[in-house]
Computed example of a mutant assay.
Amino acid sequence: MLGGGLALALVVLALAVLASLAIGAKSVPLDTVWNTVLHHDPSDGDQTVVTSLRLPRTVVGLLAGAALGLAGTLMQGLTRNPLADPGLLGVNAGASFAVVLAIGVLGVTTFAGYVWFGFAGAALAALLVHLVGSFGGQGATPVKLALAGAAVSAGLMSFTRAVLLSDTKTFDQFRFWEVGSLAGRGLGVAAQAGPFLAVGAVCALLSGRMLNTLGLGDEAARGLGQNPALARVFCSASVVLLCGAATALAGPLGFIGLTVPHAVRAFTGPDHRWTLPYSMVLAPALLLVADVLGRVVARPGEIEVGIVTAVIGAPVFIALVRKSRLAEL
């Protein structure tokens, strides 16, 4: 049953990819899209649109969406908090602060540069959250991690705003990254983030059984032979790899990692061995559909995908949490 549902989810993702390649300010027939893949003709204007503009943003959408879906599922399972999202460990705040410093202090102006600084900032912020959450007895419990993440995020965002308010040039460059977008990112940038995302995805998919055991409580996990502290470190490292690279790649996109795991658990239940692969497939489908909507609702211009995901995700999330039969963590 669940295996057939996953196959259906892959079909939905394939349709979203085709829509992302074919639909925009200039619509491209599906047969042209197929010919671009099978028999590319550089002299064909429509095929050039597909290869130079839409293919890179589709690849970025696939990578960032899959990473955010996995990271959101990991965070909700790790903290046992159904409202947790990839930003809970301070990842988004750390990436934003690092990008601001890169622009304002070092003069970095390319997305290729943002990737490295954003990833480093996300990793350092997550490490700081884990260190703060480890103080006191019982180590880094879910509640302490959530509180530490909120505190670190608030502090980093305060520093970020202070830098932006004092430097209008930095603000002008940063705001295009902060809103979240798939446009303007080349395949080279995706290739830079790809190895981190691949390692993070493999680690996330291998952590399903760990999360199931942690969901029983620390005492039960120890009784089943699992070290809760090491399991949390492993899952947290996966979140950093996934969310750090995705945030650096596409900006701090909201609601993808928060909404999709809830929707998935409505029909898979709380078993993370299924919620993780489902989220990895459906999150990029949602992100690509949101990107396509952003292209068509304001032709010939477009609305950034970060705005569209917020508009779509907020009411969907409210509807999901109000359902009485929504699967619990």
Rank of each mutant, 00 (worst) to 15 (best):
T32E: 13
F234Y: 15
G200V: 11
L214V: 11
G3K: 13
V100N: 10
H272V: 07
T268P: 02
S324A: 14
L282T: 10
L326I: 03
I23N: 00
G244F: 08
G223Q: 10
V33Y: 12
V105N: 07
T36A: 06
A95G: 04
S20F: 05
L287M: 01
P315F: 06
G24D: 09
R57Y: 05
P228I: 11
A84P: 01
V59A: 12
A198N: 00
N81P: 00
I303G: 12
V297F: 08
A193E: 03
A193C: 03
E302Y: 10
G225S: 04
H272R: 00
E219Y: 12
A123T: 09
R57N: 02
A319N: 04
I23W: 01
V311Q: 02
G225M: 04
P315S: 09
A98L: 07
L288C: 04
V115S: 09
G257M: 10
G104I: 14
S52G: 12
L124S: 14
P261F: 07
G107R: 07
L253A: 02
L187R: 00
I307R: 05
V115Y: 05
S27P: 14
P277S: 04
L2S: 10
T170W: 12
L293K: 08
N81Y: 06
V33A: 10
Y278E: 01
D44A: 13
M157S: 15
A290K: 01
A231C: 09
V12R: 00
H39I: 03
G121P: 14
E178S: 14
L55T: 08
E304A: 13
V297N: 10
L288V: 03
L63E: 06
L293N: 04
A319F: 14
A120M: 12
R161A: 13
L241K: 01
T58C: 05
A285P: 04
A112T: 13
N35Q: 15
V240T: 14
G155D: 01
R185L: 11
L241H: 02
G118M: 00
G313S: 09
N35S: 14
L242E: 02
H272A: 09
S236Y: 07
V91L: 00
L38F: 10
R295W: 08
G136S: 09
A71N: 05
L320K: 02
P86T: 01
V202C: 06
I103D: 12
I303H: 12
A183Y: 15
V59C: 11
A98M: 09
A266W: 14
R322M: 09
V239E: 01
L329D: 06
V308G: 13
R161I: 12
P82T: 11
A126V: 07
A148Y: 12
F234C: 13
G251Y: 02
A190T: 00
G24L: 06
A112E: 10
F171W: 05
L6M: 12
V179S: 05
Y114L: 07
P56F: 01
N212H: 06
A190I: 02
P261M: 08
